[in-house]
């Protein structure tokens, strides 16, 4: 599976496009690109080394960062791996499910 560079996506998601107020009023919540987050939940079956490898591959994280997230999942039950606009967040969750990790897409806040 190919991985999208998380850094690039994070940078992209921070830019905002100013739209006319009138247009904003008629848009649905989804279209406003409210921030979404990719959450990975603990699963006692998945190996810690496997989860670390998946985080490295999917998000392009260095080993140390991937391990920090893995340990957070293991110790706290969940970890927020990425946040930003919905489309790439969905793509990440799809990739994580391809590796059989328990991952969900959640609205921030």
């Amino acid at each position: 599976m190919s991985a999208v560079n998380a850094g690039q996506l994070e940078k992209g998601s921070t830019s905002t496009v100013e739209a006319p107020i009138k247009e904003k009023e008629t848009r649905g919540e989804e279209e406003l690109d409210v921030p979404w987050q990719v959450v990975v939940h603990n699963d006692p079956v998945n190996l810690m080394t496997y989860v670390t490898m998946v985080f490295q591959r999917v998000f392009g994280y260095p080993r140390e960062k991937a391990e920090r997230h893995m340990l957070e999942v293991h110790q706290k039950g969940r970890s927020i791996l990425w946040s930003g606009v919905r489309e790439p967040a969905e793509f990440y969750v799809q990739q994580l499910h391809g590796y059989l990790l328990l991952a969900t897409l959640e609205k921030v806040g």
């Binding site: 499910h97 391809g98 969900t104 897409l105």
Partner: peptide, 27 residues
């Protein structure tokens, strides 16, 4: 467990079942 829910939102889950789950099954 193999095809776990991607979200608490019903609409996302319905779309997922139609478009993503078949891809996961193939994979």
């Amino acid at each position: 467990r193999l095809f776990s829910r991607p979200s608490a939102e019903k609409k996302i889950c319905a779309e997922w079942k139609s478009y993503v789950e078949p891809e996961l099954r193939r994979l």
